[in-house]
Structure formats: structure tokens, C-alpha cells
Amino acid sequence: MARRRRRNEACKNESPKMIGSELSIPISAATMAHIEICGNREAIVEGCRGVLEYDDTLIKLDTGKLIITFTGSELCLGTFQLQQTVIRGNIVSIDFSN
């Protein structure tokens, strides 16, 4: 049973990679957050699970595997939904941490 469970878990981990490689899609697209940045004025984060910290100089988002920290000035949330979060303002740096 334990062996079968281990095999199933291995399959689960391997399947997105296999599909990704077959369809020529980056592996991370299925499992990780998708970030789109327009200059230093706007960033669109897809796959956000929640806000950890919010201020006009710092926004910390939880995307599951990563915690993304936006620092800058006059930061605001243009749209805040779980599917899509839009961050606007003067973005100075973006930090990724586990």
C-alpha cells in the first residue's frame, strides 16, 4: 500500500511536468503564480492566495509556494480578487521568498 501511495504521489508530481513538456508550456505555469509587470508602475499577479501585509510602501502577497513582496511608494491595489491582483504605484523592488 505504502509503495502504491508513493508511486501515486510520484505520478502526481510528474504529470504537470509531462503535460508541460508535451505542450511546450513552462512547468511553473501550472503550479506557480503568474506575474506580469508593466514598467515599474503596474504588476498583475495571478494565483494570489491572500494579503499578508498591506501598506502604501509595502505589499506582501501569499501565492502558495512563494511570498512576493512589492516595495515602493504610493502602492495601491487596483483590483483585489483571488484570481487576479493588480498592484499600482511606484514599484522599487520585488522580492521572492519561500
Binding site: G50, V51, L52, Y54, C76, L77, G78, Q81
Partner: peptide
């Protein structure tokens, strides 16, 4: 404020143009 935003998001309450000014949302 962070908990408020997350709870709104869970309840599917649409929020836009969210600004934080000296602790006021």
C-alpha cells in the same frame, strides 16, 4: 486591514482602487 482584505476576497466581495493612507483603508 490585511485580514479584512482576505475575508472580503473569500466572500467574493469585489474591491478595487484599494489605498492605504496612514492605517486607513
Amino acid at each position: 486591514p490585511e485580514r479584512f482584505l482576505n475575508l472580503c476576497s473569500n466572500k467574493k466581495i469585489p474591491l478595487w482602487n484599494v489605498e492605504s493612507r496612514g492605517g486607513i483603508l
